[in-house]
Design a protein around this nucleic acid. Sequence first.
DNA 1: TTGAAAGCGCTACCAC
DNA 2: GTGGTAGCGCTTTCAA
Lengths: 324, 324
Amino acid sequence: MATIKDVAKLAGVSVATVSRALNDSGYVSEESRKKVEQAIKELEFTPNEVARSLFQKSSKIIGLLLPDISNPYFPIVAKGVEDRAQEKGYMVILGNVEDNPEKETTYMKFFSQYNISGVLSVAVVKNSRHTNGPYVLLERASDKEDYSVSTDDVLGGRLAAEAIAKHAKGKVIVIAGPKEVQGSVDRLIGNIEVLKEKYIDYEVFESGTFQISDAEKIAYDLFERYTDFDSVIASNDVTALAIIKEAHKRGLTVPEDLQLIGYDNIPFSQLSSPGLTTIGQPAYDTGYKGATLLLNLIEKKPIHNKKVKLKPELVVRETLRKES
Amino acid sequence: MATIKDVAKLAGVSVATVSRALNDSGYVSEESRKKVEQAIKELEFTPNEVARSLFQKSSKIIGLLLPDISNPYFPIVAKGVEDRAQEKGYMVILGNVEDNPEKETTYMKFFSQYNISGVLSVAVVKNSRHTNGPYVLLERASDKEDYSVSTDDVLGGRLAAEAIAKHAKGKVIVIAGPKEVQGSVDRLIGNIEVLKEKYIDYEVFESGTFQISDAEKIAYDLFERYTDFDSVIASNDVTALAIIKEAHKRGLTVPEDLQLIGYDNIPFSQLSSPGLTTIGQPAYDTGYKGATLLLNLIEKKPIHNKKVKLKPELVVRETLRKES
DNA sequence: TTGAAAGCGCTACCAC
DNA sequence: GTGGTAGCGCTTTCAA
């Protein structure tokens, strides 16, 4: 690897001049610039970012903390982050924290050891802000956090309940996600608001988890616990998919015997059969806009909007009954 | 952030001693070590990895190149890599290259700028070895590559075909993945070997892609093109799931009218209904063992096995007919 | 407009 | 056993 010294020698100037040319800082004569550019090309020189960040105390890397990379929703967020980061010449380091505060702490420590310039977090843990640097919360915004991009979950909850309400005949079961997650309580609020407005009979089933591995158990428990329902509002797509499967196992047809709606619009909700009607979370946008916000913070650009709110939308497929 | 100098001052020793204590290199008296440890604790000192890597010309970061992070198979691989890396105190930087050689080049350049100590690649692009450092290929091993961990795809292909053959009545359609990918040609070889051995009527349908977005089109084309088949061997689970859906749309029941088998055992194959019978690729193990191999390479430990081969296995669920 | 030189935090050599 | 110091590759004063 060629260094800035090699470039300087070849170009017949000092390293200081090369550095200035590299960063467009200070004065460099047209002539010197030409010579430097030529030398850079010849040596295939690329600046060593490690040395650069040692001096600047900040590297062009951002950290991304995800709760569960095997849940297909998060890779999409990650892709949004990655795309935006790459546009701005940043790399992203990914940390899978699995709702484990210890892993989160470990990562935050790593991050600061590497002079990471900012972090994006979808982690669930409260008070997890172990950094003084730029930090933006994704998806699970709390009131106290300064910067965040999240989806209007109350609205999403309303959308889901409205869609279900239109064709509900019997009781509606609402599956509630973990109470610690603001987003899932908001959805529940939205669900219930609508159900009450329309005087629809419902019951809330606490599932208390978002982990993919538990979805099947939830589905099983649901049918063991209740019998007199014909509609369910699931807390996420994974759960909804598990419920479809369990319903089929029990000889029920979807949506005739049981209609249901998911939440997230993960890629697979499209491939299930019947295709899952769900609420689309703008996963990619969340990542992309989150990264944009973070990068603006890092570059100390003026921020118009500390809390970006995205809108969810109803994605109609085949798990809701037709007009009845 | 406290630095090594602060520690030295507080402990009343030189920075050299602190460094030795930190790295267990050279002699440090018990007394000095105690004082240093005390000072470290007091100042909450953590070594600056950037400075360390500037000197060592290598950071405790490994790069992971993935072809498509939204394909649920890859996040599992990533998790295996991440777990192993974290055990050894390494971080992983993730790059989503989307079978795009340019993005791959960009990442490799980033990696070298950050003195990354090694890279793990599941990327499809040939001759993509833009590095002289430790490099291990995952999943898509070619003959020429020195280090790799991959699954025995011919065996996987055989397993799939054997399972299908047991209950095939009419023609079997074999969906072939992209020819550029060694793994998918190997699977096809395995498929055909068995089908020929058993004198089963089959046809090969070239799909030419692994991208999730194309799966539905492939499924549609399949039914438009052929009518006289009752079994399909899909090139991956995503495609298989799309075929189930298309079959249902056309009023066919699975597995009675159409039996099929996937490949990969992605998490969702379990949640589909009926549950998808498939060939399990040891995704997590691939990542975990790949990282182990890479880390051994980095630490210049003796390598027993340059090309690790993992065994696929049949995962029986509900898309194959019972004994007929 | 340019270059010499200091220094970012750390490691490793060498002398004591 | 220990400490002084050079130097990793870069940026940024400061003088010239």
